[in-house]
Computed example of a mutant assay.
Amino acid sequence: MMWITALNAHVALTYAMKIVYAGNSSAINMFYMAFVFISYTHNISNVQFCRSVHISCTSACACSENCTNRPFDQEDKKVKVVKTKHCGWGVEADEFIDKGDYIIEYVGEAIDDALCEKRFWDMKGKRVTNFYVVAVRKDLNIDAQFKGNESRFINHSCDPNCIMEKWDVNGETRLGIFAAKAIEPKEALTFDYGYRLSFTT
Rank of each mutant, 00 (worst) to 15 (best):
V169T: 03
V133R: 04
N24P: 04
T84G: 10
E95Y: 02
Y40V: 10
K83S: 15
K186F: 13
V53A: 08
A179P: 06
E117M: 11
K77I: 05
E172G: 09
G108N: 02
A12Q: 10
L7M: 12
K181E: 08
N130I: 08
N29Q: 12
V136M: 08
A9E: 02
T190I: 04
A110Y: 09
K78M: 10
S45C: 05
F72C: 08
R174Q: 14
S26L: 11
F131C: 10
L7T: 13
C162L: 06
F178Q: 11
N29L: 09
A62W: 09
G176K: 01
E75H: 11
I111L: 04
Y195A: 06
R119N: 14
D159K: 13
L189Y: 01
T173Q: 12
D112P: 07
M17N: 02
A110Q: 07
I183E: 00
G125L: 10
S59E: 13
R196E: 15
G108K: 00
F120I: 13
F153E: 01
I97A: 06
I28D: 10
K147Y: 08
G125M: 13
W121D: 14
M17D: 01
N161E: 06
M30K: 07
H42K: 11
C67W: 00
K126V: 08
C116E: 11
K118M: 13
Y106K: 02
M17L: 14
D76G: 03
S64T: 15
N8A: 08
N29I: 10
W121C: 12
I38D: 03
D112G: 10
H10M: 09
N130S: 14
K181Y: 01
G176M: 05
N170H: 11
V81R: 06
V79T: 10
S45V: 04
R127P: 05
N43F: 10
I163L: 12
A144M: 07
N69K: 07
D143N: 08
S39G: 11
A180H: 12
I142M: 03
F191A: 05
N149P: 09
Q74N: 11
V91S: 00
D143F: 03
E172I: 10
V20Y: 06
M123Y: 08
N46E: 15
K77M: 08
K181R: 14
C57Q: 01
C158T: 09
C162D: 03
V20I: 15
A110V: 12
S56E: 15
E165P: 05
Y195T: 09
I19Q: 05
I154M: 03
R196M: 13
I103Q: 02
I111G: 03
R127Y: 14
Y132M: 04
K85E: 12
G90M: 06
E109N: 14
C61K: 02
D139P: 07
Y102S: 01
F178S: 06
I104N: 00
T68L: 12
Y40M: 14
D168K: 04
I4N: 00
S59W: 10
C67F: 02
M33I: 14
Y132H: 07
N24I: 09
I142G: 00
I111K: 01
D143V: 04
A188S: 14
T190D: 01
Y195S: 10
E105N: 04
L175N: 01
I177Q: 02
K80Y: 07
E75N: 14
A16D: 01
Y21M: 13
D143W: 00
P71E: 03
R51I: 06
L197Q: 11
D159I: 12
A114V: 11
